[in-house]
């Protein structure tokens, strides 16, 4: 995606200065001549307004982020609705994958939040599959990773915490506040413990969102930096012989990133279940 972005930028530049035919060349030349500065690992996180639009002063532009949200949702729909349309008794590959995901998340919700937590199963499942799909699509080179946007992960986390607080109050009334009072602890200790519990509860949306955001961001930056090493080595004369080393590192880290991206989606879902369990059973 960053590549496309560069082209757009350059095209505008070219239009302004009347150098319509040279932008592509200048691009490659710039990269080979100054490889160290040509690679910008942050560029992949830039938001690009594909269709700028605003309603009543609110910016609702269709961005590359929106595009990849659509793609992630589409992938989720294809996997869970498209692949199961045959309702086969003996599932095909896609249906088997959808069933595995279903049973996996259903099992996680049931184990962590109990039977009553199953009413939040659709929510947890949607959250999980959306994050999983956007993470996996984000790993495709030149694409955009939604989880690298703190606003997205924080939106998820705030929805989760809001849900937990509202459902906890709805189900337990003021009994929900027992969440902050650990059971069977002497009163003097409680004086210290209750503020800590409150702080830990308040920090949940932050830790939940930052964990996902930081993991994905760091992974993508690392991949881009090591990719940049390859370019730098290739542009450094005899040192080009060393270029395969960072390539191997990139391959190894890409495998790790695949794991991390799936794992973080799962961690997000599990923590959501844990918090929902707190809403259902506040006295622990």
């Amino acid at each position: 995606m960053c590549f496309v972005f560069r082209l757009r930028k350059k095209r505008k530049t070219a239009g302004d200065n009347g150098r319509a035919d040279s932008f592509g060349f200048a691009e490659t030349k710039g990269r080979t001549q100054r490889p160290g500065q040509a690679m910008n690992p942050i560029e992949q996180f830039e938001l690009q307004r594909i269709a700028p639009y605003s309603i009543g002063g609110v910016d609702v532009s269709f961005t590359n982020s929106s595009l990849f949200m659509l793609l992630a949702a589409l992938a989720a729909v294809l996997l869970t609705i498209g692949a199961t349309s045959k309702r086969a008794l003996v599932p095909g590959r896609g249906q088997a994958a959808a069933e595995v995901l279903y049973e996996f998340i259903a099992g996680t919700v049931r184990q962590t939040a109990g039977k009553e937590g199953m009413r939040f199963f659709p929510f947890v499942f949607t959250l999980f599959i959306f994050i999983l799909m956007s993470n996996l699509i984000g790993l495709v080179p030149y694409s955009f990773s939604l989880s690298s946007q703190i606003v997205i992960t924080f939106a998820f986390a705030s929805v989760v915490i809001t849900l937990v607080v509202l459902y906890g109050l709805y189900r337990n009334g003021l009994g929900f506040l027992k969440l902050f009072v650990p059971h069977g602890v002497p009163v003097p200790v409680l004086l210290m413990l209750v503020p800590m519990e409150i702080i830990s509860f308040l920090s949940r949306p932050i830790s939940l969102s930052v964990r996902l955001f930081a993991n994905i961001l760091a992974g993508h930056v690392t991949l881009a930096v090591f990719g940049g090493f390859v370019v730098m080595l290739l542009g450094a004369g005899a040192w080009a012989a060393l270029a395969p080393i960072p390539i191997l590192a990139v391959v190894a880290m890409y495998a790790l990133e695949l794991l991390v991206n799936c794992l973080q989606a799962f961690v997000f879902a599990v923590l959501t279940c844990v918090y929902i369990n707190d809403a259902i059973h506040p006295g622990h």
Binding site: V60, T63, A76, T126, I129, Q149, V151, I152, A155
Partner: peptide
């Protein structure tokens, strides 16, 4: 960058939630 992403996230995630559930 926050508002356009939030608006589209609410829209798309909401639709996905409805489809899933």
């Amino acid at each position: 960058n926050f508002t356009p992403q939030l608006v589209w996230l609410a829209l798309i995630f909401g639709m996905l939630y409805v489809l899933m559930s």
